[in-house]
Each structure stands twice: as structure tokens, then as C-alpha cells.
Amino acid sequence: MKREVPIAITFISGVLLVIAFFIPHEPFGSLEQRFNDWYIIVSGFALILGIDSLLLHHWNKVSRRSKDWFHSLSLIIAFFVTLIWGFYSGIKTGHFLSAQSTFRQYFYMYVFVPLQATMFSLLAFFIASAAYRAFRADRFEAALLLFSAGIVMLGRVPLGNAVAPYMVGLVFLIFAYLLYSDGRKEVDPTRRYLKIGGAVLSLILIYPVGWFFLHYTAQTAGWIMNIPQLAAKRGIFVGIALGGIAMSLRIILGIEKTYLR
């Protein structure tokens, strides 16, 4: 009962949907519709499964007076205030999100939205700090990634064309300096001249490359998005789709049972 029934339910619901897809006639068509309808009802309940453990965890913290118990208490209070306010507004105005509902007017717009929006805007600071500290062009792949990121970032905003030549020029200048200082220490004369030659070439290239980005940064960003980026994403998602199909089959056939734990 505890294992066989769930596996049977999974098999029946999964297979039915696949059959209904290929044979959309009766009775499969309407069965599919009915199963979908049940799914709409049942999946709503799946959304709240995590909540009890959240509340329990914080209630334990409060009752044991452990560190930060006060914050746990504010979490629990916030939970019940939101719950009661939501239902109260709903009963009073017909729907908890109606235009007259104070839940929507005040709680949602001035408490929930600022909290959620600000929480996620912190990421802007972290990404800026990471740009400075973590994004190292120490391998070819990393350099390629950063270069593509830089062009897309500059190409998608106004002023990008005007600024990009300086940025690219700076990168070439650094590259020339590195080659030159490496070359000077080189003992083997051929490699020494190759490196110093490379440094000179980098310096010369600054002008034509700068000219190119002065005129075409935005187009280059568009090209990256529409051609190589698209190709790689398509390749990746084709792989994911194939993997998804394999996984779904394993679940339906009862080979994959981790969800029953």
C-alpha cells in the first residue's frame, strides 16, 4: 500500500497524459482534461508543504529562547498578521486583492513589495563586488566569457559605442604590457622577439579595433545574442530536453523512486 499504490498512481497519470497527447480522441481527451483539473486543485496544496516545518522551526527557537529568538517571534507574528489581514480584507471587500482592500493597498504595496524588491536588489551590490574581486581572466575560457559579457553589457546601453573603444583599448594595452614584460625576461631569442612583436602588434591593433567598437559595439552585442549565444543555448537546452524526457520515463516506469522518500 505504502509503495505500490503511489507507483501505480504515477504510472497511470503519466501514461494517460502521453496517450492522450498522441490520441486526443475520446475517452482520452476528456480524461486528460479531468486529470489536468485535478492537478490544478492538488498542486495548490503541494505549495504549502514547506510551511509547517518553517513555522515549527521558528516556534522551537522561541520556546527554547535560543539565539535570535526575538526574530523568530517576529516571523511567526508576521505570518499570522498577514494571514488574518488577508482574510479580513477578503471578507470585508469581497476579495483580498480588491481595489478597496487594505491588504492590497497597504500591506502588499508598502510592506511586501519593498521587502521583496529590496532583498533582491542587494544582488546588484554583490555582483559589483564580485566583478571587482572574483572575475579573473586567468584562462582563455574565462577571458572569452568576460569579453563577451563586457561587449553585451556595453552594447545594450546608450553610450556603449562611445565607451567601448576605451575599454577595449585598455585591455589591449594591458595585454601589450604583459607580452612585453614577459618577452624581456625570455632567454630564447626567437620567443623573445615573438613576444615583443606581439606586444607591438597589440599596440597597433588598438586603433582598428577601437574604430570597430566605436561604430559596432551595439551590433556586436546583438550578433552575440542572436548567433553564438543562441546556438549554445539551443545545444544546451536540447540536451536538457533529452535528459528531461529520460527522467520522466524513468519516473513513469517506476525506475526512479526518490520522490517517494
Binding site: A124, I127, A128, A131, Y132, F135, L146, A149, G150, M153, L154, R156, V157, L159, G160, V163, M167, L170, V171, I174
Partner: peptide
């Protein structure tokens, strides 16, 4: 900010 981030990376 995009310009700033690119400068940060460099």
C-alpha cells in the same frame, strides 16, 4: 553602472 562594472572587471 554597466560602464562602472566593466571598469571594475578590468
Amino acid at each position: 553602472v554597466h560602464i562602472l562594472i566593466v571598469i571594475f572587471i578590468i
